[in-house]
Design a binder for these strands. Structure first.
Lengths: 236, 236
DNA sequence: CGGCTGATTGAATCGCCTCAAAGAGCGTGG
DNA sequence: CCACGCTCTTTGAGGCGATTCAATCAGCCG
């Protein structure tokens, strides 16, 4: 194995699907994969297009979105580093994938990737488990979208983002004030939660007024009272 | 192979996951599977419980539901004959599975079923594809839940049920009036669409008043103007 | 014939959306 | 360097759609 192998220096080597492969097995994938950087706002896959590629997300945040015939949009999932992108064995893409932040992908042509999958049962099994997890998450999101109030949605969303940011290590204190930057605009948060920009803004302002959070700068968020937020997110 | 083999007389033999197996391979599954009938209203799997079984649905309709801590419920999926039930490789169940009609299942203990899956790559691959389809459906449902009006939800729901009933062959005419029975109560429709009972009832009444549908009996529905319904479901 | 579950209908309320305008942050070019 | 324009955000006023609460009605079974 050469030092030029892209997998060797892969930041998500162990968390991604590839974690199921031995170094030897990686060689096949290695020759297949191609690093690709995408700028914030750029769309990687268009809904309805032919399904050409699969990928592992190395860095950044992507959104998965769907929209109605008359243009109403809904973000149906967010993808974080080490997440898998695309749908093997499908001829066309169902959803649009767009970069919310500058991002980096490890892209594979779909057909050859399917062959690798077929040759490596452990990897395919891992993909199955990931897909089940994604399904579970999607269904949980359905409950949230259909049954939670705007306040519950915002509180839950902030907690979710805080957990992610926390593990990414902005500040380690679990219960104390945690500050992080949202990778989404108000409009994108609205698209995730099934609300409007104005409602998102109003709810955030309300939580700030109540002292549960602070909003340093347009993108920053500080969790000041996690317990109270949790109570708003999940009323007994 | 003996005539007592349950797979031989299986109504969904070719449509289900098992369709990927040869008759010889079926023998292993055959000894594992157990027919189980469940009555309308009965719950097969409880959310949070240990994940003990997987199954193929042979007949009837099941609902997959989630609920908030304070009891608001959302149906996150419906299961029809030949659909797969459960989640292999997971230690606990995420959602509650309940029979909406009297139903019949072909149940497998999870652990042994996983072993069969591991031994039959084609079947596992088929499950992967099914799971991707379920994910796609769930995400489409998210768009519907978050962005469609009550009228759009009801119109779309009726069309979906009509398609199912149509293929099951109540009456073959594609564009003419099609009559079928809903397997769901108003309350359950409300849980599917993220509405309330009253809203469902009002929207149905409105569509009836507009002459797009008729409502013969509590459970019956007649599609009188499919094109108009389609227009309500999917405004350009 | 009650008693039950499910469906319908009405009235009033409220939460979120729509429309509208103003303010903040930020990069660009004069 | 600062004014300008852009995008994103905040805030307000008003309206509408769906919910909530409540009462009646229909079908079904014992």
């Amino acid at each position: 194995m050469f030092m030029t192998d892209i997998c060797v220096e892969c930041a998500v080597r162990d968390q991604s699907l590839c974690g199921s492969l031995t170094d030897a097995e990686l060689i096949a994938l290695n020759s297949l994969g191609r690093r690709q950087t995408v700028a914030r706002g750029e769309t990687v896959i268009w809904a309805g297009d032919e399904s050409i590629v699969c990928a592992n997300l190395l860095a950044g945040v992507l959104k998965l979105s769907a929209s109605t015939a008359d243009g109403r949009e809904q973000i149906v999932g967010l993808l974080y580093p080490a997440d898998f992108v695309g749908r093997p064995y499908a001829e066309k893409s169902d959803f649009t994938v767009t970069a919310l932040t500058d991002a980096e992908l490890c892209v594979f042509p779909r057909k050859p990737f399917e062959r690798v999958l077929e040759d490596h049962v452990r990897m395919e099994r891992m993909l199955l488990q990931r897909t089940f997890s994604a399904l579970e998450e999607a269904r949980g999101r359905m409950l949230m979208l259909a049954r939670n109030s705007a306040e519950e949605k915002i509180a839950g969303f902030l907690l979710g983002m805080a957990d992610r940011a926390g593990s990414a290590g902005c500040r380690a204190t679990a219960s104390g004030p945690l500050t992080f930057d949202l990778p989404l605009t108000r409009g994108q948060i609205a698209d995730v939660l099934g609300l409007t920009i104005e409602t998102v803004s109003r709810q955030l302002t309300k939580l700030k007024a109540a002292g549960l959070i602070a909003l340093p700068g347009a993108r920053g968020v500080t969790i000041r009272d996690r317990a109270a937020l949790q109570a708003k997110a999940e009323p007994a």
